[in-house]
């Protein structure tokens, strides 16, 4: 009984301190404005456009570009990843197939997953497929 009271009072103090902190730093975690939405959309579209440029330029050593086989990023199927890629023998993420293309038809070096160029490529590929339902694993 005494123990429980002590727990209660400690929790109460923590709660009060947090509330005071929240007010003093004016944290508003779940509120965003129309301007925020517009900004985030612009930020995303800037990366999509960067990805579109990369997708249409030579990323490897032989001047071949992604769009030569994938106009409008068609036939890349971002909605089906991750999926089992029988030639690789395991479930892969989309960036791994992008790297496969950079290394083979484009005869270039693979990009790290978090490379801004890779993120731009994935943004463009996915944007061109917007509205299509997710079907992870589908071949």
């Amino acid at each position: 009984m005494r123990k429980n009271r002590k727990v209660f009072s400690v929790s109460f103090v923590v709660l009060m301190v947090s509330a005071l902190l929240a007010i003093s730093f004016s944290i508003q975690a779940d509120e965003f404005t129309k301007e925020d939405l517009e900004r985030w959309d612009t930020e995303f579209m800037t990366v999509v456009i960067k990805g579109e440029k990369l997708f249409h330029s030579a990323l490897g050593t032989n001047k071949v570009s992604c769009d030569q086989c994938h106009p409008n990023a068609a036939n890349t199927h971002p909605e089906t990843y991750p999926k089992f890629q029988q030639q690789i023998g395991r479930v892969v993420a989309l960036f791994e197939m992008v790297n496969w293309c950079i290394q083979n038809p484009l005869e270039g070096d693979p990009l790290p997953a978090e490379d801004p160029k890779m993120i731009a490529l994935l943004s463009y590929i996915t944007y061109e497929r917007r509205g299509v339902p997710l079907v992870p694993g589908k071949h």
């Binding site: 030569q68 086989c69 994938h70 106009p71 409008n72 068609a74 036939n75 061109e128 497929r129 917007r130 509205g131 299509v132």
Partner: peptide, 12 residues
């Protein structure tokens, strides 16, 4: 040289 996707593969 290389194949092209059928136009139905472009969802837009």
């Amino acid at each position: 040289a290389w194949p092209w996707p059928y136009p139905e593969s472009y969802s837009q």
